[in-house]
Nucleic acid binder design. Structure first.
Lengths: 195, 195
DNA sequence: AAATAAAACTACATACGTGTCAGTTTTTGG
DNA sequence: CCAAAAACTGACACGTATGTAGTTTTATTT
């Protein structure tokens, strides 16, 4: 596979990503992607076998990029509370974006392929987020910023609240104020005053 | 519409419910329901126009029945803590059932019909559950069972955690122990010892 | 029992998505 | 410059879901 092929592959994935953002996962057909990429039917099949494969690769791209963005936005002298608030605000931004995110498509994908234990990117993301928050809270407690007896439990609890907000944003609708209220609730339970 | 028609309509809905439980929402076709009911293609169209309509009616049935079950299982002399624990355990049972529930189908339905503000049964259920929990906590605080400064906020927080657990059960998988841990976390934050 | 109305069925026309493959164009390297 | 390889194309055959029109069966009325 030459360099040009790799380029084209990447081009297809980036274009497909936009299609998934617009239509979710299930509604998307190979034809949709073909048309969006402006290539031929057969051509797409040279690179990918089906929409599921394409979506998985898009997700992989996505999660790599997300990690980069997160580690970039942490400054040297930020306190634990600062970082936690930053994280929560980032999550808020993410889950309130109506159109241009892959949340719904990801859910649809996991429904369709009822719980692939292998390659479960969602679970990896969840677990690693819990660990990050846990460490954050631990640090905060040591520095006297937070009051918390069960850091791991609290971290997991926060993640479940965020998951709840995320799915609620897709189903019953969630306003910016509602998210703020939840974030405040979380911070209060850690004895933190938000700026 | 005769009595027999009403009977048949109900029969179709009950049969369709099973189909939705097995296959979710999107995968279900009119043909599937026709075959499950053992009636003819045209016959089904006499009663319902499409799968969305059928599913909405199934949901309506469902939510009515759920209310009945809930109010039945509360005894006269139960304390607020008892009822809250009962409620959480009921939710646990519900969200751990892999096959025979409509959770996934409901999500799929709401994805498909991107947020119908009208007739949003999920939202109504969420809001009324929050109110019930809030009242419950208030009563508990008055009786000295609970310690809580923000009953409404706590109630909402609990519901978001439950929503998070629910969707997580469908995507990343959730074990009985994980749910227990969350329930315990909630109860501890209210200063309650579980039996 | 005949006439009428209601309910249910069957077969059809339409539409769309999939995956493939024979033929064409483009690229590559000798 | 040309031939072999690689990349690409679009039409085709197949499968499946949809909604309806015309027909048959069942129930009701007189």
């Amino acid at each position: 596979m030459g360099d040009k092929s790799i380029q084209k592959r990447k081009y297809i994935l980036e274009t497909a990503r936009k299609v998934f953002m617009e239509k979710g996962f299930k509604k998307v057909t190979m034809k949709d992607i073909v048309e969006a990429c402006d290539i031929s039917r057969g051509g797409l099949y040279l690179y990918f076998e089906n929409t599921a494969q394409i979506f998985l690769e898009v997700l992989r791209m996505e999660s790599q990029e997300a990690d980069d963005v997160f580690s970039d936005s942490i400054t040297e002298d930020a306190t634990a509370a600062d970082i936690l608030i930053l994280f929560l605000k980032e999550q808020k931004k993410e889950l309130l974006r109506k159109k241009d995110n892959l949340t719904q498509a990801t859910y649809e994908f996991y429904f369709e392929n009822s719980l692939p234990k292998k390659d479960n990117i969602l679970k990896k993301q969840f677990d690693s987020a819990v660990k990050i928050i846990e460490k954050l809270i631990e640090t905060g407690v040591e520095n006297g910023e937070f009051l918390c007896e069960d850091c791991e439990g609290t971290a997991r609890n926060i993640m479940f609240v965020l998951e709840g907000l995320k799915i609620s944003a897709q189903t019953i609708g969630v306003t910016s104020e509602m998210v703020d209220r939840e974030i405040l609730f979380i911070l209060k339970s850690l004895d933190v005053e938000e700026n």
